[in-house]
Simulated scan of single mutants.
Amino acid sequence: MRWAACELHTHTFHSDGKQTLLELAKAAKSLGFDSIALTDHNTMTGLQGRESIEAETDLTIIPGMEWTTFYGHMVTIGMDAFVDWRAKGIGDIHQGIAEIHAQGGVAGMAHPFRIGSPICTGCFWEYEISNWNEIDYIEVWSGTFPSIKKDNLRAYQLWTDKLNEGYRIAATSGRDWHFQVETEDPISVTYLGLEAGEDSLRSQAVKAISQGRISVTIGPLITMEIEKANESYKLGDLIPLDHTLPAAEQAVSQAHIHVDFSVRSGIWEIADQDFTLLLTGNTGIVSEQKIRFVDAAYSFAINRSDLIWARAELWGTVRGARVLIAFTNAIYFEVKQ
C-alpha cells in the first residue's frame, strides 16, 4: 500500500479564495503534497485547466465542491459532475448525499463545530442526520495547528462517539486553504492508503476515504495493522469473529504500529522528545509506549474483549503544548450478536 499526502479542503478565487488553481497547486507541491482536492464553495468552475496544471506541477487535482448552506458545510470529493445543493433543506441532507454517491463521490461534514452565524453562516453543522451510516467522513481537524483548537477537539470527540456507537465513519483533516500566505503553524496532512492498480489517483482516493484507509498528522506518518490468526487487517477493515474458536482464543491479537518520521523531510519540524504512542479504542487506552524520534515499528498485544474498534495516536509537545500529533483511522472488530 502506498500512502499519498493529500490536502482535501481548498479554495480558489472562483469562490472566496484569493489564489488561482496554479498558485494553489504549486504551493501544495512545495509542501510535499501528492494531491489536493479543489473544493470551492458551491461551484466546480475552478477546475478549468486542471489537466495542464497537473502536468506542469506533477500534482493530482481531485474534483470536489464544498456545499455551503445555512445549515452546514459539506465537503464533497471525487464527483463526476456538479450536484446541485440549492434545494436541500435542513431535513434533506441524505438526499444530497445520495446524489453525491450517484456521481461517484464521497461526502463529509466540514468543520462541524466552527462558530456559526452571523460570523460564519452555516459553518456550524445543523443538518438533521437520521442515518450516520451514510456520512462518509468527518473533517475532525480544520485549519492550521488544528490539534489545539476547541472546535476541532469537539469534532474529534464526535467522531469518537460515533465509533463507540458502532458506526464506521472515517476522519480527515483539511486546511480550508484560501490564501497564499506564509505560516509557521503546523500544517496537517491527510494520508490516503492507495492500493496498487491501474485506477486513477482520484478514484483510489475516493475508495480510500470510503474504506477509512486514512492517517492524519502534523508531522510523522503513523500506520497500523492488526494481526490475528495469521491474517493481517488494515485501517478500515473489520476483523471477523471465528465462530469455531472458544472465547479465550478469540481475544488475543497483535497490533503493529509503524511510525515514519522521514515523510515530507525538511518541511515540518517537531523537536525530539519522549513521544507517547497510544493504542486506543471504545474501552479507552488499550496500551501505550514511550518512543523517540526514530522510524520504527511497535507491537501491542490486544485482548479484544469488549473492543469494537481501535486506532493509534501519537502525542507529544509542540510549541509548549501537549497535543495530539498524529492518529490513524480505526480498525473494527465484529461483535457477537
Results as ranks from 00 to 15, higher is better:
Ser15Leu: 07
Glu99Gln: 14
Thr244Tyr: 14
Glu231Gln: 15
Leu201Trp: 10
Asp274Ser: 14
Leu163Trp: 14
Arg168Val: 04
Thr244Cys: 03
Asn230Ile: 06
Thr276Cys: 06
Ile214Lys: 04
Ile226Glu: 09
Glu227Ser: 11
Pro246Met: 06
Met224Gly: 08
Val263Pro: 05
Phe327Asn: 08
Ser200Tyr: 02
Glu195Tyr: 04
Lys29Asn: 01
Asp306His: 13
Ala247Pro: 11
Ile187Glu: 11
Gln289Arg: 15
Ser203Asn: 15
Trp159Cys: 09
Gln273Thr: 10
Asp92Lys: 10
Val318Asn: 15
Asp272Phe: 01
Arg264Asn: 08
Trp268Pro: 12
Lys149Ala: 09
Ile218Asn: 11
Ile267Lys: 13
Lys149Thr: 11
Ile308Trp: 04
Ala98Ile: 07
Leu192Glu: 03
Phe293Glu: 08
Thr317Arg: 11
His14Lys: 12
Ile214Gly: 08
Gln254Leu: 15
Val181His: 04
Asp34Glu: 06
Phe82Gln: 01
Gly108Trp: 04
Asp237Met: 10
Val181Ile: 09
Gly96Ala: 09
Ser188Asp: 10
Leu163Arg: 06
Val286His: 12
Phe179Lys: 13
Trp268Phe: 11
Gly166Leu: 09
Glu231Ile: 06
Val263Ser: 00
Asp272Ile: 00
Thr317Asp: 12
Phe145Thr: 06
Ala171Lys: 10
Asp199Glu: 13
